[in-house]
Write a protein that binds this DNA or RNA. Structure first.
Lengths: 150, 150
DNA sequence: TATTGTTATACTCTATAACTATA
DNA sequence: TATAGTTATAGAGTATAACAATA
């Protein structure tokens, strides 16, 4: 009965609990290192990029004031730096410090370990298949969040 | 170059952005209805179950005091009810009101719509495949969160 | 004594509003 | 005037600690 129920559910009904499960793991790892989910995500973004405050806020769907506070606290802890932009003297670039970079690498390893109980449910081949499906799913998301609802 | 980078990444590196994308959508829908992600999740849980406060807190990985406050606010809004348990006079069962049930149904529809830009990237057949892979992934999670790290 | 739940208190995250500096 | 960012303030969510009632 339960299994039958599930097979009639949509992809979203599997996506949502997966997201909650993943976030629970990330949240726990973050909490152990005094990082909110948002800051954890910021560190991940900064590993590849060097955005301005406004870009970062936009990417995360947060208000610029919220970013100011978040980055100010992270900077005080030595995880990120704010440097004035060359192009626009009002603007500020945000980037990882070496310490922030090292921390994220450690957290990334912890994520792999913590999610292993889930991922090892699948064969290597199925893991690759799942990964490919997820990347295809995320294509419209790339860059910035979807213009939800219009 | 970017695509090559990706193919070398692990499943977790696809799972995490998928989770963030999904949560962003849920968060937006929640915010439009003045519901936190946690409360949104509570409503989803209560659609199928009638847990006690402690069970709910345990399932969500929250402290019992946090649940008290969350449920108290939700009850004040008429979304959930607290009724004394018959078995144990200390205990309290939590359940959805009709209003809470109706609200969740509406939100569930909104989720489907909001995530459609992502899910429609895949054929129906691939959606089913992805759904099955995710359910297999989640098997160890069922019931309660994994004993992280232990 | 141990357990279920609530209340009191403090801190973080987030948003709204007002502000400064630059464009 | 409009934009980039900060500061001031307030509300929700969460945790720690102390408490009440029942087991």
């Amino acid at each position: 009965m339960k299994q039958d129920h599930r097979t009639s559910e949509s992809l979203v009904d599997a996506l949502v609990p997966t997201a909650f499960a993943t976030m629970a793991v990330l949240n726990k790892i973050g909490a152990e290192n005094d990082l909110s989910l948002t800051l954890l995500r910021v560190l991940g973004i900064l590993r590849d990029r060097r955005p301005r405050m406004a870009e970062l806020a936009d990417h995360l769907g947060l208000e610029k004031q919220t970013m100011s506070g978040l980055i100010a606290r992270a900077e005080k802890r030595g995880l990120v730096m704010r440097v004035p932009s060359n192009d626009d003297r009002r603007a500020v670039d945000v980037l990882l410090t070496n310490e922030g970079n090292d921390l994220f690498d450690r957290l990334h390893d912890q994520m792999q370990d913590a999610l292993a109980p889930l991922t090892r449910q699948l064969t290597i081949s199925d893991q690759r298949l799942l990964k490919d499906l997820l990347w295809r799913l995320l294509e419209p998301w790339e860059g910035h969040p979807p213009a939800n609802g219009g």
